[in-house]
Design a protein around this nucleic acid. Structure first.
Lengths: 168, 168
DNA sequence: CAGAAACTATTGCACAATAAAACTGTTGTG
DNA sequence: CACAACAGTTTTATTGTGCAATAGTTTCTG
């Protein structure tokens, strides 16, 4: 499905460079998703992936209310409520009534929760750095430049998380 | 967490080039996961993501038995059984006893299932190609070279799918 | 200011995804 | 043939998910 040397998508339709780039991009993204998934699995075996995503949101945004949690995860508020229930039971987050507005709650990471996110993040960066370290040196700056051009073209500011991609 | 200009991971710890590359890689991978998730959502709104992963396995491997399905998806055999149940109800796959071994079954895509995978794949490639088309031309070959070096260093042959990454 | 409207979160209900364990039937092997 | 190994399903329990209804709280409006 993704042969590296392919340069035509359909017989008779010439798509010269773009197809090769697409192949390279898809292959690299598979590798990256694999790295991330393994980092999470290695560190957070008692937590599910959706739960980890919630922890990442709190790690990025700090103390927030349920609406923000649900919106950031792109799930129904009821789902967010119950995920928080379970993460409280696991000791990873806390939930308190917001003293400034009693209809809102404040959800935030506990020390254990922050620790977990930190461990996963460090491991993932370490694994990516290890791959980069195995690359021929001359390709490294090239990779930075090319990826920045790619990201730029994709129109995603590096701080914003495209929906569903925040755990990566 | 991932500012593009950051070049130190911890205060006092100098990690010159590798950290910049890691940032670039992580940012790009978020964009890519977003693209894939949107392509699936756009085409396959009646199918869930795990179900789509199952269809991709069948699309890649052809007719297989339940053990292979469960192994490729990295799920329990019982989970695979019920996912196939639902995909049969949706008309996307078929399941028959293997005539050569009556304790095995043969699961494969129906025409509708193959169609769905094809539509998602084409859309995703189109979206990536659109991003690439917005890149300055000189970066395109650079991107191919750099990503191939990166993938090579990651040790993933482009045909092999790291566990959990086959839907991407 | 009182009642209506809007907002925030939770609960009830239904179903999909998931794993572990028990179970059923099939195949292979001594 | 008896028994082990294998393939798949069913049972049981938990998590993730959305929709609809509900309960408080805050804000708006006449």
């Amino acid at each position: 499905m993704t042969g590296r040397t392919v340069s035509r998508s359909h017989p008779g339709t010439r798509v010269p460079a773009a197809d090769a780039v697409t192949d390279a991009v898809l292959t690299a993204s598979r590798l990256l998703v694999g790295v991330s998934a393994r980092s999470i699995a290695a560190v957070a075996d008692s937590i599910t992936l959706p739960q980890f995503r919630l922890l990442v949101v709190l790690s990025t945004r700090g103390a927030v209310n349920m609406s923000v949690v649900a919106e950031q995860l792109d799930v129904n508020p009821s789902t967010a409520t119950r995920m928080v229930d379970r993460l409280i039971a696991a000791g990873m987050v806390s939930r308190d009534t917001n003293p400034a507005s009693r209809r809102e709650v404040v959800v935030q990471l506990t020390a254990a929760g922050g620790d977990l996110v930190g461990r996963v993040t460090r491991l993932r960066r370490k694994e990516i750095a290890a791959i980069v370290a195995r690359m021929p040196g001359k390709h490294r700056q090239e990779l930075v430049d090319a990826l920045e051009a790619f990201t730029e073209a994709g129109g995603e500011p590096s701080a914003a998380l495209p929906e569903g991609a925040d755990w990566i």
